[in-house]
Design a binder for these strands. Structure first.
Length: 747
DNA sequence: TAAAATAACGTCTAGACAGCATGTC
DNA sequence: CTAGACGTTATTTTA
């Protein structure tokens, strides 16, 4: 089908596509048009990665906008929100406006209601619905990207319930659900009352196979020689061979340590194939990586990158990750060894994909578990760069004949599992039942049940795919919510209490709220440590692992600082609770270290985490402390200013005395400390400071000093002719570090 | 006797959304 | 109910 044959979309769109080199639609896209995506018809598109899902979404959104409507694009990750925003930015020259909103980032200036297209994460949409954002009622088209994630135990129910709410508010809403190929696309279509396009067509061929011995065994029965030398491992052989053909390789492994280890080994392979230009470009990239953060992870990554290899996992900071992704797309980095972060994240296609580990440790299951077919297919789907490679190849590795057969059976020839609603699990129920009641979607038990009838769970139950736990879980959850004062019940009727409304609005898990309220209730003026431990033991915070030896260390710490900890220390004999308490304590001490200006690399080493983990914990703590602050002031619980101070301290990573200074733009934890040690203790001091002292404290960086003074509101920030004051000494704390600012910025 | 090969043992284990009010180097 | 890769240290084998 030619692009100009599509009716319903604005006329410029065909021209725009032709400019991009797109003349005709791919078969699944044509099928979507035939199904009516451009005429407001709802659609489930279950198609492989890189087969043009985004264009289907664009057809739907643009035709809706052409009819005078607005569109919402829901993504599962913040990184994807920015990626989509970039993609849609091209429409701005045709007069459309695009906005993004996620928890950490809101589009500048204008209110989102003015936008034609809004990109948001599913949680953000949920939150906006709860808070009654006005434009939610005026949506005409909603695109849900990666909708197979409704299968996810933690975040799936949010998407499921949010879609149900959006459809309830806008009865004529067009829903376009984009999914990877799954086992039950038809069921999803039934749930959403949508047409179905279920296709395995790909623009470039993807050959899936298993490497065993000296050859690749493809699913279609063909074989291809791929010799492994005696000194190397199969992964190295694949990378080497791909490199010889001028292609890059993505290697998926099952742990961070393996990712780093494999990257270090593969660097020895990739380094041989680099030309002089590449070496130069890579070494400047390595410098950029080193500058991101002064940690071992950062150095290790830079060392690999210099040789053309990289690792990628959640311990890397977001800057690390995007630098690596970009360089891989530019074909500068030849191989990335990654944990599943990369499979779900932004687009990083490669000639070959190696799924090295097909089992992963799972604490719940008590051992190594095979990955799901869906997940392996998602990884494999990264093979083949449209317009660049003639085909993509994705291989698993076997080291016995039996394993070869098993892998072919299990992953190469297998169809992905059906996606299964996880709605009827208590943790998500707590949150969503409260939110549904609080935001007025249901005012009784029966209304709640009939609302839940619009979910995938109900559709699947009707098919007899599982027993109906829903009613039972609803009842236990409602009594939990009632006991803890989030709702009031009167017979069938249900009403959210003031507290319930607040908790729903704050986007807190009610159990977290209960824990916080309980903890604050018995401490009038809590310490920072106490507050950190309190929010760390909340279900909204993933705690740090307790490693061997930690148990002892943190048990001692728990008794040492028992007076500060909020709530009652569980008994050592309550295995689970005590362990949780200790890992929360470990997390808390990490936050305390951060808020005591300990260097990032010291924290990384002390807790065995990467810069990305520190950032994550700090972020979550900041958010939860903000929520605690709201709860404390509304419920009149504890000293609100103590909570605010603890929050400010994690936010900036500084001691109490630096909070004021660190609030100045351009002043982070390191610069604030230097200024303070030079006698400039507050924002007001800075405003009236002696310029030569400021310059000396900032180690003679004139431009920096000028910017800082300007941000503080100094009368004459210009530094011309100012010489550093010789009396200002390097403080011990600040000495030795390079550039000053601790870098924990967002991407 | 020292170095190298091998066995035994211990450790560790993926990911990442959200409030609110304004501005990171 | 369920594991396996990797690093470190102890033990045996080899030159």
């Amino acid at each position: 089908m030619d692009v100009s044959e599509v009716s319903g979309v604005p006329p410029w769109f065909a021209d725009h596509l032709r400019e991009e080199g797109i003349e005709s639609l791919y078969p699944p896209q044509a099928a979507a048009v035939d199904a009516g995506v451009a005429d407001g018809e709802s659609l489930v598109a279950s198609v492989p990665t890189a087969s043009g899902k985004t264009l289907v979404a664009q057809l739907a959104m643009l035709s809706a906008i052409d009819r005078g409507g607005t569109a919402l694009y829901i993504v599962p990750l913040r990184a994807l929100a920015s990626e989509k925003r970039e993609e849609f930015a091209a429409f701005e020259e045709y007069g459309l406006s695009v906005g993004v909103t996620t928890g950490s980032y809101e589009d500048t200036g204008e209110w989102l209601a003015d936008k034609d297209i809004i990109v948001a994460t599913s949680e953000k949409v949920d939150s906006l619905v709860r808070n009654g954002a006005p434009w939610i009622d005026d949506l005409d088209c909603v695109v849900a990207d990666e909708v197979h994630l409704v299968d996810d135990e933690h975040r799936g129910p949010t998407l499921e319930v949010t879609l149900a709410k959006l459809r309830r508010v806008n009865p004529n809403l067009q829903v376009v659900a984009l999914s990877a190929t799954v086992g039950n696309a038809g069921e999803m279509a039934e749930w959403l009352d949508a047409e179905l396009v279920d296709s395995s067509w790909r623009p470039i061929e993807l050959r899936k196979g298993v490497h065993y011995g000296q050859a690749l065994h493809f699913g279609d029965g063909t074989q291809q020689e791929l010799p492994v030398q005696r000194t190397e491992k199969p992964t190295e052989a694949v990378v080497r061979e791909t490199l010889d053909e001028g292609g890059s390789t993505l290697v998926f492994v099952n742990s961070r340590r393996n990712a780093e280890g494999a990257a270090k080994r593969l660097a020895k392979t990739t380094v041989d194939g680099l030309d002089a230009d590449e070496r130069a470009a890579l070494s400047s990239l390595a410098e950029e990586i080193r500058a991101v953060s002064d940690t071992e992870t950062s150095d290790d990554l830079a060392d690999c990158v210099e040789q053309g290899a990289a690792f990628h996992h959640a311990g890397c900071s977001s800057e690390h990750r995007s630098l690596v992704e970009d360089a891989f797309r530019d074909r500068l980095i030849k191989t990335i060894c990654a944990t599943p972060t990369l499979a779900a994240g932004v687009n990083t296609p490669a000639r070959r994909v190696v799924v090295r580990d097909w089992r992963r440790y799972s604490g719940d299951a008590g051992g190594m578990q095979p990955l799901s077919v869906l997940e392996v297919h998602q990884m494999m789907g990264r093979a083949g760069r449209p317009g660049r490679d003639p085909y993509g190849e994705a291989v698993l590795l076997a080291d016995s004949h039996d394993e070869l057969d098993e892998l072919l059976d299990r992953y190469v020839w297998a169809d992905p599992e059906p996606v299964e609603s996880k709605l009827a699990r208590e943790p998500s129920m707590r949150t969503h039942l409260l939110a549904t009641v609080a935001s007025g979607f249901a005012d009784s038990r029966s209304a709640l049940l009939s609302f839940l009838d619009r979910t995938l769970y109900a559709t699947q139950y009707r098919h007899g795919d599982g027993e109906d736990n829903l009613e039972r879980v609803v009842d236990t959850t409602l009594s939990y919510l009632e006991t803890n004062g989030f709702i009031d019940r009167d017979g069938d009727a249900i009403e959210a209490t003031d507290l319930g409304h607040t908790v729903s609005r704050l986007y807190l898990d009610p159990m977290s709220a209960a824990e916080i309220i309980d903890g604050l209730a018995d401490a009038a003026s809590p310490t920072a440590m106490g507050l950190y431990q309190l929010v760390a033991r909340t279900p909204d915070m993933y705690e740090l692992y307790l490693r061997s030896g930690d148990r002892e260390e943190y048990t001692m710490l728990a008794y040492e600082r028992e007076a500060e900890l909020l709530g009652e220390l569980p008994s050592e004999f309550e295995e689970g609770r005590f362990e949780d308490w200790l890992s929360a304590l470990k997390t808390a001490r990490m936050l305390e270290d951060w808020a005591s200006e300990l260097d990032e690399d010291d924290i990384a080493e002390r807790y065995g985490v990467g810069p990305g983990d520190i950032r994550g914990k700090v972020d979550t703590a900041e958010w939860l402390l903000g929520a605690a602050e709201s709860l404390a002031s509304e419920q009149d619980l504890a000293d609100v200013s103590a909570i605010r101070e603890a929050r400010k301290r994690v936010e900036h990573g500084v001691g109490e005395e630096l909070i004021d200074l660190a609030g100045v733009r351009g002043v982070g934890r390191k610069r604030a400390r230097r200024l303070y040690d030079a006698g400039i203790e507050t924002r007001a001091d800075l405003r009236n400071a002696d310029k030569s002292v400021v310059l000396a404290a900032l180690r003679g960086r004139e431009q920096t000093a000028e910017n800082v003074l300007e941000a503080a509101g100094h009368q004459q920030p210009e530094m011309d002719g100012v010489t550093p004051d010789a009396d200002v000494k390097e403080s011990a704390a600040a000495a030795g570090t390079d550039d000053g600012q601790a870098n924990l910025g967002d991407f």
